[in-house]
Design a protein around this nucleic acid. Structure first.
Ligand SMILES: [Mn+2]
Ligand SMILES: [Mn+2]
Ligand SMILES: [Mn+2]
Ligand SMILES: [Mn+2]
Lengths: 229, 229
DNA sequence: TTATAAAATTAAGTAAGCTTAAAATATGAC
DNA sequence: GTCATATTTTAAGCTTACTTAATTTTATAA
């Protein structure tokens, strides 16, 4: 009914939807690393299966059936990531890639077993929320991009929005990991490079990096614990 | 390089090779639940990839490359089965089906992680040997089919050769599980139905069932521990 | 050995999911 | 509003992995 390819389209659509609010075919092609015509082609087919609403030259939308299916793909992906990380002790930077394939090859029953074994986790190892079996997302803390944080504010690193091995290994090497506190010291004007402190060390962070790190529990100045976001 | 479909051909070929000594296209079609022409078609392609030696109207054979690849598929399958059974506590009768898909979707690195976590098991939950990372099978106890056992001999149930849920659930319901001792009491002549004792109970076993159960540590009569097979 | 049955192949066709090249449409800078 | 650019679609074609129907080859048994 839904092939591996279709599931990847649905998953990518879901992520784009979440980031950009709408899904342009171009971005889909980019995310899936395939040509534009292939995307048009597939979306027409997804339209026929009532998974998306496709009309020419317009951003594509989920039907409610499609959104449900997408949620299930996301759920399987994130439970696999959590499972590989917590149970198998597979390296943090590699679980995404592995889950990208396993998400298509496991029964719902197996996913539910793993979820129970993990005691129904709310977050995957990158800080993304895990939909329940009914497709409901757990309530999340308010978050803002590190790139958008105000000067001299601090917060907790809570999510990364890019799962490439290279990026994640860079973060680990720099000690920029989930759960740590981080304070924004300075923003260089012409290229938005940030200076931060983490573990009492100053570090420079490129704007691209800062675009992919999300912070929660923002507090102004860091003198007290007042939460402003 | 090797698609899911190709891997299933290689896996099925391996099993047939092991059971029957040679692989007829017909049997492959049967095992994979596809038509004869599809098998001919694929085997020609596998020939071009130097995975098998194909010549028309003859049983097909592995090349050494093909055998290696098949071994790796078998290895992934059996490690998954063992992992699901031991770690996830997934039901015995369902691990085969799940592994049949997962075997195509996991990196070698993940397989090796799971294998280490399981402390390098030699057998999967159905009693099949697990090839090492180098494709070497562990030494196995001598086994014979329950169907071929001599009257009044007993032995240990050590392997089942059919992994369908229906069959495995039947065995569990009857208490016929790996590791138990079983003695052959009687063989009815006209249909080879067997009478056995297991757990001090008499049971009737169809010949088809007996064809799919393998015994080790055969001892004659059961009076003493002398091993004859 | 010859008829019959079983096994395998050839032929023709299909659907999914891709590709590149060319054409159409939309966007957005001035 | 026009024009250049970016986005999307159409067109044509390819590979993989299947199907059924018809034919050929091999195996078996009287
Ligand atoms: Mn991921
Ligand atoms: Mn995927
Ligand atoms: Mn199995
Ligand atoms: Mn398989």
């Amino acid at each position: 009914m839904t092939s591996e390819s279709i599931e990847n389209y649905l998953g990518a659509m879901y992520r784009l939807q979440n980031e950009a609010g709408e899904v342009k075919l171009n971005q889909l092609a980019d995310a899936l690393n395939i040509s534009g015509p292939a995307v048009t082609d597939m979306l027409k087919r997804l339209g026929q299966k009532d998974l998306v609403v496709y009309s020419p030259y317009k951003p594509v939308k989920f039907t409610s059936l499609g959104e449900q299916k997408a949620m299930q793909v996301i759920r399987r992906h994130r439970i696999w990531e959590k499972f590989l990380f917590e149970v198998v002790k597979f390296p943090w930077e590699k679980v995404h890639e592995e889950a990208e394939r396993l998400e298509h090859s496991s029964s719902d029953e197996l996913i539910n077993y793993m979820e129970a074994m993990l005691d129904f986790p709310e977050l995957d190892p990158h800080g993304n929320p895990i939909p329940s079996i009914n497709g409901v997302l757990p309530r999340q803390n308010a978050m803002i991009k590190l790139a958008d944080m105000n000067l001299l504010h601090s917060g907790i690193i809570s999510r990364v929005n890019e799962h490439s091995q290279e990026f994640l290994m860079y973060l680990m090497a720099e000690g920029i990991t989930l759960g740590k506190e981080l304070r924004l010291i300075e923003r260089r004007n012409f290229d938005n490079t940030l200076t931060i402190t983490i573990d009492n060390q100053e570090k420079q962070i490129s704007s691209m990096t800062a675009e992919n790190i999300f912070m929660s529990n923002i507090s102004n100045g860091g003198r007290d614990g007042k939460i402003t976001e």
